[in-house]
């Protein structure tokens, strides 16, 4: 697919995915652009093993990780094992504050450990299959299932336990 149509089709979805991961509007916009710029360079290497959306999401996720690496949030600690324990400022924008329930959901998402958040965003919000989520996250399917279940449980706790009733 030419880059223009790819951007028109997927830009919103990629932006939303990144926004869920970083919680910052401007950063999400920048990383969205970077995702598509990176896709230009690696487009011929897209081997059709997954959908374009999955492929773009994986690039986006890698960029998010690279961003945090650059920010040295993860300095001196092994990235893939410890990043999950790190939390960062995650505050929904003003546009949501009026909508109380939605705001609470965003806030709860922001309080989740990073790997739970990723799993929930992909599986429950973006509606990726387990297989696709595993491809994007570079995990096995069991880990995706596990993280989603535990994330949902944690989110229920954060929301006071009554929402899943």
């Amino acid at each position: 697919m030419p880059i223009k149509s790819m951007y028109v089709t997927y830009s919103d979805s990629i932006y939303q995915f990144i926004y869920f991961l970083v919680g910052d509007d401007e950063l999400a916009k920048d990383l969205t652009q970077e995702t598509f710029l990176k896709a230009i360079n690696s487009n011929p290497q897209f081997r059709g093993e997954s959908s374009e959306k999955t492929w773009l999401s994986k690039i986006a996720r890698n960029l998010v990780y690279d961003h945090f690496r650059r920010k040295r949030l993860l300095k001196f600690i092994p990235f893939l094992h410890e990043h999950e324990q790190i939390d960062y400022t995650y505050s929904p924008e003003q546009w949501l504050e009026a909508k109380n329930e939605q705001y609470e959901l965003y806030e709860a998402l922001g309080k989740l450990p990073h790997h739970y958040r990723e799993a929930i965003v992909l599986r429950k919000i973006e509606q990726f299959s387990i297989k696709e989520s595993a491809q994007i996250l570079g995990w096995n399917e069991a880990k995706v299932k596990n993280a989603t279940e535990r994330g949902m449980k944690k989110m229920n706790e954060l929301l006071g336990g009554e929402r899943d009733a």
């Binding site: 830009s11 926004y19 916009k29 969205t32 939605q102 959901l105 919000i125």
Partner: peptide
């Protein structure tokens, strides 16, 4: 219940100005 709430979670989209400048 939480599943359906998350599925219908309101999401912000990119504004036209940003889209145009990024496309350029």
């Amino acid at each position: 219940m939480l599943d359906s709430k998350l599925r219908s979670l309101e999401r912000k989209t990119l504004d036209e100005e940003t889209k145009n400048s990024q496309l350029l």
